[in-house]
Structures are given as C-alpha cells and as structure tokens.
C-alpha cells in the first residue's frame, strides 16, 4: 500500500540533521556578532555625520536592502577570491592567503555579516537616537569621554530599546542561513538535502529540517524575552 510518509525515515534523519546544527548556529551567531560591530560603527558614522563615510554607509545600506540575499551570497563567494587573487598578482598583498583553502563557511559568515550589518545599522541608529538628550548632556557635564559615555550610558539604554528589533532580524537570519548550501556549506538544510536525495524521500527530510528550524527559533525567542527583561530591568524592578 502507498504511504503518505515514511515515518521511520523521517525519524532516522533527525540525528544526522541535528549534527549539523553547530554550523547553522555558528553562522547565525557569528554573523550576529560581526554585524553588531558593523551596525554600531555605521550607526555612529551616520549620527556624527562623518564626511565621506556617511555617504559610503548610505550606499552600503541601500545596496544591501535593494538586492536579494541570494545574490549577495554569490557576490561574496565569487567576488572575494577574485579580489584576493587580483591583489596578490597586482600588488603582492595577502601572499599568505590561499584562496582555494578558504572554507565556504567563511564566505557564508561574511555574506551574512555584511547583510545583517546593514539592517542592524538603521535599527541601532534609531535606538541610539531614541536615548534622551539629557543622558548625553549629563554624561558630558561630569566629564565623561565620548567612549565612556557611549559604553556605560548610551549603549545599554539603546540596547534595551533595540532588542525586540534585533531579535526579529536575528531570527530571520537563522532562517535565511538555509541558503548557504548553494555555496557548498553543509548546514542542517544541506544535510537534509543530502539525506533526501540519498533515500529519495525529500518530503520527509524537509519536514524534519523544518521542525529543527522551528524549535531553534522558539528557543531563541524565549531567550530574547529573557534578555529584554534583563536589559530593561532599570525601568521598573529593584536591583539585586
């Protein structure tokens, strides 16, 4: 008789898929960290209206928002080796880099950092600008240096404002990492594809992988709620 699903195959595919979870999480978390740096840096460029860099930032953000992520991944994957190769031949730079030995995971990490960085830039900028002017003035009035003011007063308050948005973007990024198999990264999606074609049971493996994504995203959402509470604790609760 004909079965809708090969349940056994579905269940048996989980361990192999889950074993690639570190790749998915690694790319997502790694690009979150890198993109936070990009986001803060470009946000400050915009806020302080740094000449030239301000324009570069605008073009960067606009380009990333206006082009598909898939295309950006290809641009990084094919573009960066070419650029490195060109620099080696023309200028003798980066001689120690062996283009052929760069793992596809590295390109994935870069592509996602560049992509997420552009989206975070706007969120971080508006979060910083939402901090009351009086906070800046009070920090300056007691003689704090700009870096001290930013790190100790402004960023913590901006973070509390930005966490819901940052969280949503991070969750989107987790899901978007499912694209990385196109450049040869075997993440949970890549693994599902491999299993699927091996057993000719694509429906089963995609159900399995969707469940893994779903659980991962629920876990991250929970974590975000906790983080937000913690970041906003000064708005109500008593310090311990």
């Amino acid at each position: 008789m004909e079965n809708l699903l090969d349940i056994n195959f579905l269940i048996e595919s989980f361990p192999a898929i889950v074993s690639r979870l570190p790749i998915t999480i690694g790319i997502a978390v790694g690009s979150l960290v890198l993109s936070l740096f990009i986001g803060v840096f470009t946000a400050l460029i915009k806020i302080y209206k740094v000449p030239v860099l301000s324009v570069v930032t605008s073009i960067y953000v606009s380009f990333i928002r206006g082009t598909p992520l898939l295309v950006q991944i290809y641009l990084v994957f094919y573009g960066i080796p070419k650029i490195i190769y060109y620099l080696q031949i023309e200028y003798g730079w980066l001689q120690s880099a062996d283009v052929n030995s760069i793992a596809p995971e590295v390109y994935a990490l870069l592509a996602f950092s560049i992509n997420l960085g552009a989206y975070l830039s706007e969120t971080i900028r508006s979060a910083i600008e939402s901090v009351d002017r009086g906070q800046f003035e009070a920090a300056k009035a007691i003689g704090m240096k700009p870096t001290q003011m930013m790190l100790q007063i402004i960023f913590p308050q901006a973070l509390a404002v930005a966490i819901p948005n940052l969280g949503n973007m991070f969750i989107s990024t987790i899901k978007d990492t499912s694209l990385v198999f196109i450049i040869g990264v075997v993440d949970i999606m890549g693994q599902a594809k491999i299993l699927g074609s091996r057993g000719l049971a694509f429906f089963e493996v995609y159900i399995a992988v969707s469940i893994v994504y779903w659980i991962l995203c629920i876990a991250v959402e929970r974590l975000l709620v906790k983080l937000e509470k913690r970041a906003r604790r000064y708005e109500r609760g008593i310090a311990s």
Partner: peptide, 10 residues
Amino acid sequence: FQQYNLFKNL
C-alpha cells in the same frame, strides 16, 4: 538639570 537627567540604567 531641570529634568534631573539621572543615568536611567544605573
């Protein structure tokens, strides 16, 4: 300051 401007996160 008139609006106190205490550091809200501290």
